[in-house]
Each structure stands twice: as C-alpha cells, then as structure tokens.
C-alpha cells in the first residue's frame, strides 16, 4: 500500500487528498489539487520554476514529497492576487516593468521574492539578484525582473507605512 492521505493548507484553504508516497509536492499541487500555477522545469532542483513557500520559507516543490508537506502551510502563486482579481503589488510591478515574457519562470520568481521582501523590505539590487540566483529565466535577461522587484519593494514599504 503506497498511497497516503495528505491534509495540508494551501493559500489559507484546507485541502485533503491522497497521493502515492513517491509523488512530489509539485506534482501533488498540480495534478492532485489542480493548482497548475506552480510550474515544473527541470524537476531536479536547478531551475527554480517550482519554488513555493512551505511554512513561510521558499523551497523547491520538485525536491519534496507530497507526504512531507502533511500538516504544512503552503503558499503558491495562486494565493498572491486578491480573490476579486486585484493583483499583488509584486504582480503589478512585474506587469509595469515587463518583468516577464513567456512567464514560465515567473511563479517561482514571485514566490522567491515574496520571501525576500518579507525578510528584507528594503533590499538592494544586489540582494534581489542574489535571491533570484536560483531562478532561471531565459527571456528577460533579469534586468526587468530586478527593476520590478525594486518597484514592488518600494510599493510594499509605502503600504506598510500607511
């Protein structure tokens, strides 16, 4: 018997499902829960496309088993925008700065930046580049991503002061 039932919280909502023990968390999110915003590129921890937040910290969801997330609080790209469709400041900044072209790497980059901006509300460009060094983008050349991250950081700081 290699199936296990799994209960976890994703973007504040409780989910339960069953998964074979060898199912990665990324595949469980996509196929088990239908949350296909988390993308899979290399599936061996190099490209960063599958980055999500597990209990508040960024992690490669291709390098975790779904059973390991039992009881965890997971955040994925689907949790960023408001339920009414209003974009998160990070998403708005990416749109404003052309921070994406094909968009494949974008969910992983946004989740990495969510962690960075939570830890360091006022990062330097070097901090941003260091944080996203584990996220590969083949379209943008990163400049527009860094510009978007800096704009989002400024917006979020304004929001914190208000």
């Amino acid at each position: 018997m290699s199936e296990r039932s799994i209960e976890l919280t994703v973007n504040g909502r409780s989910y339960s499902g069953t998964a074979d023990v060898r199912t990665t968390l990324a595949d469980f999110l996509r196929h088990g829960l239908g949350l296909t915003g988390t993308h899979l590129g290399c599936e061996h921890g190099v490209c960063g496309a599958c980055t999500i937040l597990v209990d508040g910290v960024s992690a490669r969801s291709c390098l975790m088993l779904a059973v390991q997330a039992e009881g965890s609080d997971v955040r994925t790209i689907e949790g960023l925008a408001e339920p009414n469709g209003d974009l998160h400041p990070l998403q708005t900044a990416f749109r404003d700065n052309h921070g994406l072209q094909c968009g494949f790497c974008t969910p992983g980059i946004l989740m990495t930046l969510m962690e960075l901006l939570d830890e360091q509300p006022d990062p330097t460009e070097a901090d941003v580049r260091d944080a996203i060094s584990g996220n590969i983008c083949r379209c943008t050349g990163y400049q527009s991503i860094v510009a978007a991250a800096m704009q989002a950081a400024a917006e979020l700081r304004k929001g914190r002061r208000a």
């Binding site: 060898r22 061996h44 921890g45 190099v46 490669r60 291709c62 390098l63 975790m64 059973v67 390991q68």
Partner: peptide, 26 residues
Amino acid sequence: ILAGGQSLMAMLNLRYVFPDVLIDIN
C-alpha cells in the same frame, strides 16, 4: 535516509538511485 532532500530527491527524480525503503528523518 531522506534528510533535506536537496541531493537525494534530485537523484530519485533522475532515477540515479533505487532504494527499496526511504526513511524520512524530517
């Protein structure tokens, strides 16, 4: 033994290793 999984999970995904039992010590 599965610790942080940052090497072993990649090796499993690439099928470089075929353990009969995975012991998750997290």
